[in-house]
Amino acid sequence: MIIVEDLHKSFGEVKAVQGVSFRAEDGKITGLLGPNGAGKSTTLRALYTVLKPDSGTATIDGINVVEDSVGARSRIGTLPHGSGLYPHLTARENISYYAELYNMPADTIDGRVQKVIDELDINDFADRRTKGFSQGQKTKVSLARSLVHGPQNILLDEPSNGLDVMATRALRELIRGLRESGKCVLFSSHVMQEVAALCDEIVIISSGKVAMQDTPDGIRATTGCDDLEEAFVKAIDMVEVES
């Protein structure tokens, strides 16, 4: 479970995140939705402790990300924006490298790596060097890499970027599978349809603030719009009027 409370982060003059609070529960898919530059990535980066928040707290399974960043990081699997692979290593080696860095027991690594390779259906190219992989293949390997240690919390930053229809569908299936096994999935997107298709909870972020957090139905009701896209635009407008 991920709890974010009143998170602030500025880069010089730019206030990227100004008071973001939300909860992402276990066994649910929570979507961070917002236009480009709304502060989604900054929020996620604070959660996987690459950025240190100026104020506010964030906990992952009760572990404070600032006070025990290594502990918090061990509870998460991440797919950062444009997640890169090592081109000279095979897909399997890329995954194993992370498994070792996750400090998994040496004798379990090979088995676990094979398991995620099966789960993500990447056996066909698991032993090829990742140089020249398609975007879909790369995303799958990156995802396998972040899931290899079986994390309770999974943070995905725009995971469907650059994926074709088939790959996107496969990704959605996988994310639903993670929910079924009781994981906490938090992912960011600026694509309404995707969030609508997947999420149990939607957190709409605009200009560094949370405009709304609710179920898709709840959001439709609050904004009085049947169409989620309309609702999204309306919710963002509401923030901008306030500020």
Binding site: R45, T49, V70, P80, Y86, Y98, Y102, N103
Partner: peptide
């Protein structure tokens, strides 16, 4: 190189010092 390739950020997300 790692930064340019985009492999630095996931690496820094790992539970290692």
């Amino acid at each position: 190189g790692e930064r340019e390739r985009g492999s630095l950020e996931p690496l820094l997300c790992l539970p290692v010092k």
